[in-house]
């Protein structure tokens, strides 16, 4: 079943024809995913905000000038723009965002928690804080696939295309990311583990 009544391609076509509402809908659908993708690379919230703005402006200019090439999907296209801008930023600054471990909190400092009863909130906060930190400890390739699949809702096929690997490689990276996370969660005695795996 289709997720939306009107697909992204139709919205892009409507936007190019002058329907501003169509662009607003595209923004609402994908803003968080694009922001997450950029954040993943730059690990700095304020820089990610600037680059997100730059990404969408570039996309707007491309679409408005009739240079948008409808070969792929909108989301992978715009995520790629954001990713390239982020890489360009580090090239200009003559440094690459390779290993920035610290405590990892900067990348996910805009993560919010779902609603929960008060008595569960503290445990959830602790678990989520730990999880966010552990995600940062994953190897870059695994982290990239995990973020793309979990938060950008890209299929493994889309991820394989976007990252230039086979579907099996993308699946393998995701598998190791999840296995590693689970191991790390267990080692850190995170509450969820005890709940699901009583001794």
């Amino acid at each position: 079943m289709a997720k939306y009544k009107v697909n992204d391609s139709t919205l892009v076509s409507q936007y190019i024809k002058g329907n501003e509402g169509a662009f607003e809908e595209l923004m609402n659908r994908h803003k968080n995913r694009v922001f997450m993708a950029i954040n993943l690379v730059v690990k700095d919230r304020y820089l990610a905000e600037d680059l997100m703005q730059e990404t969408f402006i570039k996309a707007i200019n491309t679409m408005k000038s009739g240079r948008y090439n409808e070969e792929g999907k909108f989301l992978p296209w715009i995520v790629r723009i954001g990713h390239n801008l982020a890489i360009d930023h580090f090239r200009r600054a003559k440094r690459y965002p390779t290993v920035i471990m610290e405590d990892g909190s900067s990348v996910f400092n805009t993560l919010k928690f779902s609603e929960a009863p008060v008595e569960e909130l503290q445990i959830k906060k602790e678990t989520h804080k730990k999880l966010k930190s552990l995600i940062q400890e994953l190897p870059d390739a695994q982290k990239q696939v995990l973020i793309m699949r979990s938060y950008m809702e890209m299929s493994f096929k889309d991820i394989a295309e976007a990252t230039g690997v086979s579907i099996n490689t993308a699946l393998g990276r995701m598998r190791y990311a999840l296995i590693n996370l689970r191991k790390m969660l267990g080692q850190n005695n995170v509450a969820y583990d005890q709940n699901f795996y009583p001794e």
């Binding site: 923004m27 805009t110 779902s114 999880l131 999840l178 689970r182």
Partner: peptide, 29 residues
């Protein structure tokens, strides 16, 4: 095992700042 981790991951969410979104929409307009 994987279901448990995926469930935990699904509870995390990132939100693009409204201020930036509004800037972009304004630029488009």
């Amino acid at each position: 095992d994987m279901q448990d981790v995926i469930d935990e991951l699904s509870k995390l969410e990132i939100k693009a700042p409204d201020r930036i979104v509004e800037n972009i929409l304004e630029y488009s307009r």
